[in-house]
Amino acid sequence: MSAKASPTYKKIIEEGLIRARVFEFLQGELDRAGFHGAKVVSTPVRDVITLYVERPGLVIGRGGRIAKRLTEILKREFGFQNPYLRVEKVEQPFLSASIVANFIARRIMRGERHKRAAFAALRRVMASGAKGVEIRIAGKFTGQRAREERFRAGVMYRCGEDPMSYVDYAVRHVMLPQGMLGIRVRIVRPIEATALPDQVIVLPEKVEEVLAEFSGREAEVAQEVPPELLEESESEDESEEKEVKEVEGDAGEECESGGTEEDVKG
């Protein structure tokens, strides 16, 4: 009697757990290389693992030693039968929240003040073309009391579809003598203006079309109105203008004479 096949959802969960463990392992091993992410593609022949890093040379090593060591660990610890590592360089590293968080963590570990490290990262992120960035650092900085400091620039999306589509998020931890520091980074990647829900673009062609449509309607209305009504409206406008001029003239004469007769008697 054949063994009962495991449900599909269990296979999906197991694959997800393995990928999470691989990601965590690579993140710790390739911290100095500026690890951004990894993608695992399984084929009948081999398992292709693509690594996205800031400095590929630190992943390959001299003569490929580091890459070979990582391949052996992936075989032994994670059950990959025939893993194949591919390394790709991240073209704009400061648009990656993971790389920025590692950058801040390394500078704090060297003894640099957290504010200086955060502002340096913030300037580089905005110079790379990001729409916005938020850096949060929490923990014990100087005294025994923990606190959180935030550094922001640009815009930041927090609800709806925008955070999932356009915001990159990463968390790193730094162990210091006074305690643990937590670093959280959010970066809004460069987006086309047409994709943002809070931006309105006025197209000149549409404006011209609307103006032409309104001018055509006015011409049609003018043709529909009979000429007798137009003459009457013009005569009424002229009479109103005469009345206004007469009232203004009387008011000017009163001002020159010093007021009305009742004002003089008073």
Rank of each mutant, 00 (worst) to 15 (best):
A118D: 11
V125P: 00
R184Y: 05
A130V: 11
P93V: 12
G179Q: 07
I104P: 05
L181K: 01
N82C: 06
F151Y: 12
A127T: 03
N102S: 14
A195I: 03
S128C: 01
G154N: 07
A118L: 10
I108D: 11
M180Q: 13
I104A: 15
H173L: 07
E134R: 10
V100A: 09
P197T: 10
V125H: 02
Y157A: 08
Q81A: 09
C159G: 11
L181I: 03
K131D: 05
M109I: 14
K89S: 06
F94C: 01
M180N: 08
G129Y: 07
V171L: 14
M126S: 06
A170T: 05
R136L: 12
I99H: 02
E91N: 12
R186F: 03
R136H: 09
G79L: 08
L176A: 01
A130I: 09
R123P: 00
G139W: 05
G139N: 06
A117K: 04
G182F: 01
F103K: 02
V185K: 03
I191A: 14
D198A: 11
Q144T: 14
F103V: 03
A117C: 08
Q144V: 08
K131N: 09
Y84S: 04
L85C: 13
V185T: 06
R113G: 15
E148N: 05
Y166V: 11
R172S: 10
R172P: 03
Q81K: 13
M156D: 04
I135R: 12
R110Q: 12
G139M: 04
Y169K: 14
G79Q: 07
A101I: 06
R110W: 02
R186A: 09
M156H: 05
E88A: 15
V87M: 07
L85T: 09
I137W: 04
S96Q: 01
C159T: 10
P93D: 08
R145W: 07
V174D: 08
E192H: 10
C159I: 10
F151D: 03
I201L: 15
D168V: 08
V133P: 00
R172Q: 13
T194L: 14
V174P: 05
P177A: 14
I108L: 10
Q178A: 11
N102E: 15
P83W: 07
C159V: 12
F80H: 01
T194H: 15
V133W: 00
V188S: 05
Q92K: 14
R184G: 08
R123K: 14
H173Y: 15
L95D: 01
D198F: 12
A170H: 06
A193R: 07
G160R: 07
N82K: 14
F151I: 04
S128W: 03
Q81P: 02
V200N: 03
R116G: 08
V174G: 10
Q199L: 11
A127Y: 04
